[in-house]
Design a protein around this nucleic acid. Structure first.
Lengths: 335, 335
DNA sequence: CTGTTAGCGCATTCAG
DNA sequence: CTGAATGCGCTAACAG
């Protein structure tokens, strides 16, 4: 059996004995339509199982769609999907839907994927950048497409941005450790090249500088070598001649890996992680927590605002982090 | 400064001194175009920052878009997001992008959201159903839109489906407990109304029946009361006159809650969770694991297959679960 | 309150 | 190999 053909606004108009425009008005118009006309139209639409074709509508209205693109590096990271959840939530509140695409954390892919998303005619673009240059979006920005950097700033492109207070948040954590007397504090993270880790590292240095400690590379484990496991790196760090008495981590993955290493070693080393995680409370792990869902919501709001006021100056929103003390970060120096 | 207007295929054609159709051919045509013509067109396109408008293209080609809709109840659940990741991955491999929408786990919202997604002209619809009846999709199915039930079957609608081996997986877990001598085995889950939990419950009963135990309601904690916390329910269960010597859980959230309760009580109760989680290995928690990413990939493949062969009989794919023993499930009965 | 005309940007005829 | 005409489904701009 061949598929029946989908009915259009014309079919409904014919059946209801009105013009196509009237059907359109019934479905979208804030215009007035006589109640009985409206009912005839609705009845006809129901009988024909009519559903307005949004694609055609968007095209006619100047290619202005109701979808917003979100391009993300790696969807598997729980942090990012919480962000995506926040974005989707806020977009839905405003009648938009989210088109989600991933780049495998590869700079070349980013450009291709962003291009594909833009050609879908998205109303705005939200992007967690991977490449170190987003100037290729300059043209698109000139066409008036709102572009928002999420979690990291877009490089070489004027844009709205939502960030965490990475530097201050990490500084606060390290300060809480120095206040306890810690001086040998290590910083553990995987990929150090991304903006967030660089900022957190800066905060770490800020706090150490305040107590006159100039951190040496000996206490940095930045996981630039993708082959080496963070877990092994931490074990090595702890077995060095002058091991740290406290560790701060640069993100959730580093926290998990560090946690496992410390468990293996049965070490009393203090630990504060960046990013909260589900079992942290049960495990008594202190963290620099933040609201990833709020980050997403804020990003979506920036985009929606800019749709309304395209020429407003770029805005930068910061989502606050907070130090959550659960035990692992309150241990005094040992050894 | 007013925004420059986006250039169209016509603009490119004019600048290159060819017709619109030729530009179209350069961008999509497997048709032949003379190399020098092609170059002129490409040069013009680049200068004008031309990007083909996919919306218009899709409309002209009969509303056949390259996006696939995925409707999900609650985006925050890591399981679903991993599924979404799998879907997105496989879709991207085939040139589709994913339109993601959520329903807040509400049956009424489901219908509204599904409608909105369909009116976007999606090429296929993937749905984790929440409502207990999807017959409202019958019309859409007749129009030839591929519809796939993900993780749970669609009710009253013929459709492709991807499921986990919920029943067998849970039976295997319980069987491993009865083999150790456990007889008082509790089943803990939140919302018991959904298909997956019902199936897992059935598997639990299967395995108990095999050793002649007919489970009483006393050992079921199904969390139908949204007010009561699962954690409290488990504490109560363990303090009853004849507490279980082992617990199996119906999903990842129940596992976490149960884990916390058992820690609070310092109980030697055996535990096998359904769904794996990040720290399970470190914590030595045995689980019924499965590959949520593969589930998503399989769902996407079903949709893509059906796009190609619309009249093939509905298919049901099952993704295998496997019992991962890490210690908590191998504890013998106590007390 | 309702109808008519025109055309969004593109691709599919059918011609050359 | 290339171009001209036509229309996808819908809605703005103007009528009435």
């Amino acid at each position: 059996m061949p598929n029946p053909t989908r009915s259009t606004i014309q079919d409904v108009a014919r059946l209801a004995g009105v013009s196509a425009k009237t059907v359109s008005r019934v479905f979208h118009g804030s215009d007035q339509v006589r109640p009985d006309t409206r009912e005839r139209v609705m009845a006809a639409a129901e009988r024909l199982r009519f559903r307005p074709n949004r694609v055609a509508r968007d095209l006619r209205r100047g290619g202005v769609t109701s979808t917003v693109g979100f391009v993300i590096g790696d969807i598997q990271n729980p942090f990012y999907f919480t962000v995506a959840g926040g974005i989707e939530y806020e977009l839905a509140q405003h009648g938009y839907t989210m088109l989600l695409a991933t780049t495998d954390d590869s700079a070349e892919t980013e450009r291709r994927v962003v291009d594909a998303v833009l050609s879908q005619g998205v109303r705005a673009l939200l992007l967690i950048p991977v490449a170190d240059d987003q100037s290729y979006l300059e043209g698109e920005r000139h066409f008036g497409t709102p572009i928002v950097g999420v979690d990291r700033p877009l490089e070489n492109l004027l844009s709205d941005t939502v960030l965490l207070t990475n530097r201050a948040g990490m500084a606060e954590a390290v300060r809480s450790l120095t206040a306890l007397g810690h001086r040998r504090i290590a910083f553990v993270a995987n990929p150090a090249s991304v903006h967030t880790v660089r900022e957190r590292l800066a905060g770490y240095r800020d706090a150490l500088a305040e107590v006159g400690v100039s951190p040496t590379d000996r206490w940095l484990s930045l996981g630039d070598d993708p082959a080496a496991s963070t877990r092994d790196a931490v074990v090595e760090l702890m077995r060095s001649s002058e091991p740290p008495t406290a560790i701060v981590t640069g993100n959730n993955r580093a926290t998990t890996a560090t946690l496992q290493a410390l468990r293996d070693l049965d070490s009393p080393c203090a630990l504060i992680g960046f990013d909260d995680f589900e079992l942290a409370e049960m495990l008594g792990i202190s963290v620099v927590a933040h609201d990833a869902h709020a980050l997403g919501r804020a990003a979506a709001l920036l985009a929606i605002d800019r749709i309304d006021r395209p020429t407003a100056p770029p805005r930068r929103v910061e989502i606050a982090t907070s130090l959550v003390q659960r035990g692992s970060g309150e241990r005094p120096p040992h050894g």
